[in-house]
Nucleic acid binder design. Structure first.
Lengths: 115, 115
DNA sequence: CCAATCGTCAACCAAATGGTTGAATATGGC
DNA sequence: GCCATATTCAACCATTTGGTTGACGATTGG
């Protein structure tokens, strides 16, 4: 029953997890390094990463004793696509929509994160 | 603490609430009419609508004894914009996006809530 | 005015969430 | 082989969530 979108949106609802995603935008990271800036236990971070993984928002790959985390854009894109349907029902919203298309469709676009 | 995005994403994490939003895409609706296609109590729907309202995803206006619900796109747009920062860091295939447009924008599309 | 309709409130319940701590399981370095 | 490092597991806790039912307050129609 619990749809892919359920998991994605639920994962995105937590500020710690959104912060983790933002960090991973910069680079892949080990679990310990992900945990470093936060004030909660490593176990709690590990749980957050599990939730992000099951939501398909990140992937974890163990190399040696280190488990690397990297963004997995598909789920984010699915959620984004779902929301775009609502951006369109009003002319005002075409702003964001057009910016999206512009960036997304230009072959030589600079796809680096802005932040 | 709980950010606007927290509330928006948490609200979007429930399939019933996403279905409600989809219904409201068609037209503004009274609470009772929103509840009609669902198998849960009116009180439960009322709670869902409160959550959507506090998340800024819909607005409710009482006229007479009927309370009308309508989409409020700002919060959705905020969430959408947040996610686009992630959609861009990799060249994207627009497949899913185009399929979505096809379904969602066709005038005779079946937008009824799916369970 | 009275009854029906619209919607919320209150109390309750089971399950999920986000956190803790302490022990356990790899793995790597020396 | 041993110890430190990296990460998860297990048990526990408080709070939130999504649902129920029944009573309640407004409003409308006849």
């Amino acid at each position: 029953m619990s749809d892919r979108l359920d998991l994605a949106f639920a994962a995105l609802a937590d500020p710690t997890r959104r912060a983790i995603l933002t960090m991973l935008l910069e680079d892949d990271m080990a679990v310990t390094d992900v945990a470093e800036p936060f004030d909660i236990s490593l176990a709690a971070i590990s749980k957050h990463l599990t939730i992000l993984t099951r939501a398909g928002l990140i992937a974890q790959e163990k190399r040696g004793r280190v488990k690397w985390c990297k963004l997995e854009p598909d789920a984010l894109r699915a959620a984004s696509v779902w929301m775009q349907g609502f951006g369109q029902f009003e002319p005002v919203n075409l702003d964001a929509f057009e910016r999206f298309l512009e960036v997304e469709l230009s072959p030589e676009a600079d796809h680096s994160p802005q932040e």
